[in-house]
Each structure stands twice: as C-alpha cells, then as structure tokens.
C-alpha cells in the first residue's frame, strides 16, 4: 500500500508516495536518486547509511520512511553550502581520511552530528561517537584526526 509522505530533505520540501515500511535508505537512493548514502549491512551495524534526522545521526537502513514524516533529513548531498564544503568534509580532505571512501559519507554525517551537540569533543568522545561506523579499509587513525581537525575548522568559521 502506498502512502504519500512529506519531509524536509536537505532544506527543501520533499514528498514521496510509497510503501511506508520501506527503509529511508532505499527511498533516498532509488526514488530520489541520492546515492551518497551507502548500504553496508542493512542491520544498523556499519553506519555507512547514516543521515541526519533533525540534526542527529541515524542509520537510514533501519529507519522506515514513514518515521521521517515532517522531519528534517540531511544527507551527504546537502552538507556543502553554496558550493562550499562543510568543515567536516574539508577536514576529511585535509587529513586524507579516505581510502576506498565508501564509508566516508556516513563517517562525515556521524561526525557532523557529534559536533552539532559537542563542539569540542575529546579524542575519547570522538571514538565513542564514531564506534558504530565501520571502515573496512581501516583508516580509523586519519578519520579521528579529521574529526579533531573539523572541530577546529567549525570554531574558526564561526568566529569569523
């Protein structure tokens, strides 16, 4: 049975008509052509599919599309503003925090969610917050550095 849903996607009003049980990840990728959110496990274990829902990271593979009705959803495609990379994106480039890069969109959104609630996380807090995200290339070291660097960039940008 198909139902019409409305939510805010990357700052814009968005509506889809679909089966309410479908995972948000699938709707984003197949109905809305936003393939930046990745599938890695489908069971909430790898967080490659992370999106921000009302600013907090959530695994979109286990989030039924019906639950985002009227909420704010942000995907990796909506992070850069006016062609300018978000500080977390910039930090991943600066620290060369990627190998195959498949985990990177999820990593960036989880880190963005962390910085949304804690602008100055310690290394331990970063590891705690990121532990749900898998990187099979095992580039964890550079990713931690990137999140630390991102926190500095956020501060710099907001003080300007």
């Amino acid at each position: 049975m198909e139902i019409e849903f409305k939510f805010h996607l990357n700052g814009k009003e968005c509506s889809v008509k679909t089966d309410p049980r479908r995972p948000l990840l699938e709707v984003l990728r197949e109905d809305l052509a936003l393939t930046g959110s990745k599938y890695g496990c489908g069971e909430g274990q790898c967080r490659a599919c992370t999106v921000l829902i009302d600013g907090s990271p959530a695994p979109s593979c286990v989030t039924a599309v019906s639950t985002v009705q009227n909420r704010q959803v942000q995907t990796i495609e909506g992070l850069a503003e006016d062609g300018r990379l978000h500080p977390v994106q910039q930090a991943f480039i600066d620290e060369d925090a990627m190998q195959c890069g498949y985990c990177v969109p999820g990593m960036i959104l989880t880190a963005t969610g962390l910085l949304n609630r804690n602008s100055n996380p310690s290394r331990g807090e970063i590891i705690e917050a990121m532990n749900g995200n898998l990187c099979r290339c095992c580039g964890y070291g550079n990713i931690v550095k990137a999140v630390e660097h991102a926190a500095r960039l956020v501060k710099e940008r907001s003080s300007r």
Binding site: G36, I93, Y102, P105
Partner: peptide, 20 residues
C-alpha cells in the same frame, strides 16, 4: 592526497552500486 577526494566527501562519486 587522494585524487578524487572531493567527489568522495560530497557523495558525488558513483560506486558500482550507485550507477544510475
């Protein structure tokens, strides 16, 4: 640094599973 990094961090790079 990695060539193609910007396409990765913006989600623009299309992996085999992203081809449309």
């Amino acid at each position: 640094p990695q060539v193609g990094g910007e396409a990765i961090v913006t989600g623009r790079h299309q992996y085999p599973s992203d081809i449309q």
